[in-house]
Every structure is written in structure tokens, then in C-alpha cells.
């Protein structure tokens, strides 16, 4: 029955007003939108104004072009489906992996790689834990170094030349969403890309000036083209290493 046919009742209870929503689908939909919006606004809007949302931590820098290329391959291959990158603030996790992850450490990841699926170990602090050679052996044939591993083989990565042609465009796009890539970084993307693959190359000093603590790797980039495996290894080897936790003040950042 339409509402117009409704006989007016002398004393209206609250339920009568609710009938308006029950009998008019458009009003019902608008009501749902308002209700959901209030929930969303209360949960989300304060985060944009909270200083606590992303604490500022010294040492966190954007990824170098090579690390960024590695990150993209990491996402492309779906590594996040089995590996999280978030050491939670729980005793056993801190005991095993090291200092719990800070929001700042993934602030330049688009998309972030926190995850909750751990078929493999958490990788938030993998950087510097093993050698480059180990990562190469392990990507090629995980069971050769860790017999109990269930990780698939990624040997094709070291046979696939790295396509770095669009890395500067990639950085430009990330700059649009707030990653602090400077024009200088974007202009020198190709130089930095190859410099990080060869520690003896003259570009390493410039690379490290632009990206503090970026480590150049003995990938032989001066002798052969960089591969996708090189990029992934460069990415993995910086994971969790940017913040110096000897300096970081835990107590000041309790929130």
C-alpha cells in the first residue's frame, strides 16, 4: 500500500516514522548511505589528521629505482600471497624476526605488503640476513638450500632481463601519490638503476647521496644486463634495514 492511503493516526509512535523507510525504497537507500557514511567518517577521517597515524622516523627513504623495480616484480609474482611484511608487536614475533614493524617502514609502498598469510616467513626484516648469492640460489631452487621449503622455483627471474625502461614514469606516478621522489631522482633513474648493480661504478656515490644507505650489489651490471632476479634481491636486501633501531626511541613512540 502506498503511504498516501495510510489513515492518519492520532498518536504516532516511533515505529510509524520507521515505516517511511520501509515503504519508500529510495529513502531507505539514502538512509543506508547516511548510516554507512557516519561509520566511515568516524573511523577514517580522524586518521588524516592524526600525527600518530604515520609516525615520522629517521632513515626511511623512498626505494631506489632498482629496488622499486624489484618491488614491482615482487608484487607481480604474488610473493605477498605467502609472505607477509609486518612483524607484529607480539613477543614471539619480535623474538624471531626483530623489532616490530613501524607504519613508516611501509609508507612508500604502493600497495603495502603487510599481509596476514604466512606460508613462508615474514620478510619485513629479511634485508641483510642472508647473502645476495643465497637469495639467488634460493630463488632458483629453494629446496636446494632449504630442503623443507614449499616455495616454488623462480629461476626464470635470473634469465629475464630487467625491463627498466619505464622506471622513471613509475617514479613520477608514485610522486603524485606522495612518495617524495624529487625531479633529480626521476631524471637520474636510469643512471641509479645501473649504478646499484655494480659497486665499482662511478655512479654509486651519487646514488647514495640521493638514497642514503642504499647498498650497491655485486651483480656485474657493468658486464651484463641486469636481470629481474637482481632487482628482487636488491629490493629484499633493503627490507627492514632503513631504520637504525639502535637510535630509534621506543619509549617516545608509545601510543
Amino acid at each position: 500500500m502506498s503511504a498516501t492511503n495510510q489513515a492518519p493516526t492520532p498518536k504516532r509512535s516511533l515505529w510509524d516514522y520507521h515505516a517511511i523507510f520501509e515503504k519508500n525504497s529510495i529513502i531507505l537507500v539514502l538512509g543506508i548511505l547516511v548510516a554507512i557514511s557516519i561509520g566511515g567518517l568516524v573511523e577514517i577521517v580522524p586518521l588524516f589528521f592524526l600525527k600518530a597515524t604515520i609516525e615520522k622516523v629517521d632513515g626511511v627513504r623512498p626505494k631506489t629505482p632498482l629496488e622499486l623495480a624489484g618491488f614491482d616484480i615482487y608484487v607481480r609474482e604474488g610473493c605477498y600471497l605467502c609472505h607477509s611484511q609486518q612483524v607484529r608487536a607480539l613477543r614471539d614475533e619480535v623474538e624471531r624476526y626483530g623489532h616490530y614493524s613501524l607504519a613508516a617502514e611501509s609508507m612508500y609502498d604502493h600497495p603495502f605488503q603487510w599481509g596476514s598469510k604466512r606460508n613462508g616467513p615474514d620478510l619485513a626484516r629479511i634485508g641483510g640476513k642472508y647473502s645476495d648469492d643465497w637469495h639467488r640460489d634460493h630463488l632458483r631452487h629453494p629446496q636446494a638450500v632449504v630442503p623443507a621449503s614449499i616455495m616454488p622455483r623462480y629461476g626464470f627471474l635470473e634469465e629475464t632481463p630487467l625491463d627498466g625502461a619505464h622506471i622513471a614514469d613509475n617514479m613520477k606516478t608514485l610522486a603524485l601519490v606522495g612518495v617524495p621522489y624529487t625531479q633529480d631522482m626521476i631524471d637520474k633513474a636510469q643512471e641509479d638503476l645501473s649504478a646499484q648493480g655494480s659497486p665499482d661504478s662511478p655512479g654509486v656515490a651519487d646514488l647514495q647521496a640521493r638514497y642514503p644507505k642504499a647498498s650497491a650489489h655485486e651483480f656485474g651490471a657493468d658486464k651484463r644486463p641486469l636481470t629481474e632476479a637482481d632487482a628482487v634481491i636488491a629490493y629484499l636486501q633493503q627490507l627492514g634495514t632503513q631504520i637504525d633501531f639502535k637510535i630509534y626511541d621506543n619509549k617516545a613512540n608509545i601510543r
Binding site: P46, A89, I254
Partner: peptide, 22 residues
């Protein structure tokens, strides 16, 4: 519980995951 401008509500117990893990 509730995020608010200037910081989330702290709760009467003062519970905090970082304090707990420390």
C-alpha cells in the same frame, strides 16, 4: 577505541600493544 583529532581515546586501563610487548 575511538580515533579522534589529536589521538585515539586511550581507554581507562592504559593498555597499549607496544607497552605490552616491551
Amino acid at each position: 577505541a575511538w580515533p579522534w583529532f589529536g589521538g585515539a581515546t586511550k581507554g581507562l586501563l592504559g593498555w597499549n600493544s607496544r607497552t605490552v610487548v616491551a
